[in-house]
Amino acid sequence: NLRWTSEAKTKLKNIPFFARSQAKARIEQLARQAEQDIVTPELVEQARLEFG
């Protein structure tokens, strides 16, 4: 299971509600691909840039 830093959680809250669950799934996918067990603000930002 993935842990989220408080900064990453804050960044996730800045994503519009309607896109948040999809973004969260993508962020967690990116973390797993990078073999990380902690979601960082950088991963959230990477996903945000993908979504535009």
Rank of each mutant, 00 (worst) to 15 (best):
F17G: 09
T40C: 03
T5I: 03
L12T: 01
R32P: 00
A19Q: 14
A19M: 15
I27A: 15
L49M: 11
A34C: 08
A31H: 01
K13G: 09
F17K: 14
K9E: 13
A47K: 01
K11S: 12
T5G: 03
E42A: 08
T5L: 05
E50G: 07
L30C: 03
P41W: 12
V44R: 00
A23C: 08
I27P: 00
L43R: 02
P16A: 05
E42N: 10
A25M: 11
L43Q: 03
A34E: 08
Q22S: 10
L49F: 09
W4R: 00
F17T: 08
E28P: 00
P16R: 04
E42Q: 09
R26P: 01
K13P: 01
L2M: 10
I27H: 00
A19V: 15
A19N: 12
Q46L: 13
A8Y: 00
K11V: 10
R32L: 10
R26D: 04
A31L: 03
E35C: 09
R32S: 05
P41G: 13
T5F: 02
Q36S: 13
K9H: 07
F18Y: 14
G52H: 13
Q36W: 10
S21Y: 07
Q46Y: 09
A47F: 15
G52F: 12
E50A: 06
S21L: 11
A19H: 13
R3H: 09
R48D: 05
N1E: 14
K24L: 10
S6P: 14
I38N: 04
D37H: 12
K9R: 11
A19C: 11
R3N: 06
L30I: 08
V39K: 00
K11G: 07
E50K: 07
F18N: 10
L12R: 01
R3M: 11
S6W: 11
A31Y: 01
L2T: 03
F17V: 10
E45F: 05
R26K: 09
T10N: 14
L30P: 00
Q46P: 02
R20N: 02
A19W: 15
L2N: 01
D37A: 11
Q46C: 05
R26T: 06
Q29T: 08
Q33K: 11
A25H: 10
R48Q: 11
D37L: 13
R3D: 05
I27L: 02
P41V: 14
S21C: 09
K13W: 11
T5S: 12
L2K: 02
G52N: 14
V44D: 00
Q36Y: 10
W4D: 00
L43W: 04
T10P: 00
Q33E: 14
D37C: 09
E45W: 06
S21V: 11
Q33P: 01
R48C: 08
E42R: 05
Q46S: 07
I38A: 05
K13C: 11
Q36P: 01
R20W: 05
A34V: 07
A34N: 13
I38R: 04
A8K: 00
E7Y: 04
E42W: 08
R20I: 05
A31D: 00
A47H: 09
I15H: 02
L43A: 02
Q46N: 05
